[in-house]
Nucleic acid binder design. Structure first.
Lengths: 211, 211
DNA sequence: AGGGTTCCATAACGATCAATATGAAACAAG
DNA sequence: CTTGTTTCATATTGATCGTTATGGAACCCT
């Protein structure tokens, strides 16, 4: 059930560039400079592909960005699986924040979070792009909430646990860490923030028959 | 010690628009749509002032934005005073987060935070504008840290209180709430996030001779 | 070798960008 | 009323924006 990995051209001149590698470069460019503020000229330079080839391969700038954003965000199902694998919702969120802190301070990638910065604001023309980014965030939020409520149902968290508040806080800290990273905060600083943001979680209910 | 309120023109044609009101409109436009993604054409429409008048009154787009941003952020001294007035650092930060949650969900202003969204990313040309926004954030961070350390010195907080971590967390939550607000979160949601983000603060040391 | 098809590089499209040149209009002072 | 000064509205600047038309080049199939 993969998205057609190679349409297998039967005829015509073969593609002279690696579409996947070019998309990766585009993603990095958008990550660095944002959607509207990254020009086609910037993209041709970053991707090593001329403008007509970009349009032939990706449609237009908007679709290229959306594809780059999906590549950045990854399959939501993967996050869901990771959340399902984690022993508790708390562990899952802690991992998510830790991964974000690490990702935002990579030395080979731009600082911060593409989802947080690339479409933080913009003109009316780009409203649908911002909405697409918001949709990604909402998907993450839904996964967090669902995992917390699963723990509540299993008796691992108190019934009065505020699942939405905890999820919103995790999301806010994630997006906020992006700003800190852009401002130059190092990895340890973000990891400390991530950890500090989780002390509000209710104490887990330890199962009597465990161990 | 106010910034000259009216240079008192002695001669020539008088200004036909209210400079201060126009700046306010520009601030709202940048708040809504960001620095680079708000065009001069957008600004003339929002401000009700023609382009040459904008350039005469504010210099260029960059200086107009910087002035609008200073207007948005207000005098850092005011925040410092508010922090000094608060009974504890914890109260000061709680107030700051609460005010942010309220500001970001105003119904007469754009959603979110101008400092967080207007210069979250952008082209190389606007690097200095982003740096100016970062400087504002660093100033806020410094004020928070100083106030926390003041409480530590006064014995209101444990000596091992992580002042920088708490300040970074507060800043991250503030900037993160801006994203939530832009995504449509309501005021109560943000207020709940703000409150939840503060439970990690160490218990205050109650003075024996108080009361 | 000769179609058929697809991609490449070059160059250009109209639109919009930030910023100004120009000259008339509106005021104060003499 | 004239002169000096400043702002006004109009129109335009060169540059860059996203996008595309054009024609040759590179490949598969017969």
């Amino acid at each position: 059930m993969k998205t057609d990995p190679a349409p297998r051209r039967k005829t015509g001149r073969p593609l002279s560039f690696d579409r996947d590698a070019a998309l990766e470069k585009a993603m990095l460019a958008f990550w660095e400079s944002g959607y509207e503020t990254t020009s086609i000229s910037d993209l041709t330079a970053a991707m090593g592909v001329t403008a007509p080839s970009i349009y032939a391969a990706f449609g237009d700038k908007k679709r290229l960005f959306l594809e780059a954003m999906r590549r950045y965000a990854g399959d939501p199902g993967d996050l869901e699986k990771a959340f399902a694998r984690a022993p508790t919702a708390r562990d899952a969120v802690a991992d998510m924040l830790e991964n974000a802190a690490t990702l935002y301070t990579g030395d080979v990638t731009p600082k911060g979070c593409l989802l947080a910065s690339a479409a933080a604001t913009g003109s009316k023309d780009a409203a649908d792009v911002r909405e697409a980014a918001a949709k990604e965030r909402r998907a993450i939020r839904a996964i967090i909430i669902a995992r917390i409520e699963q723990d509540i149902e299993r008796g691992l968290l108190p019934p009065d646990t505020k699942s939405r508040v905890l999820a919103d806080l995790a999301l806010a800290v994630t997006q906020g860490m992006s700003v800190l990273a852009r401002d130059g905060a190092d990895r340890d600083t973000l990891l400390a923030v991530a950890k500090a943001s989780m002390v509000g979680w209710p104490s887990p209910i330890v199962g009597r028959n465990a161990v």
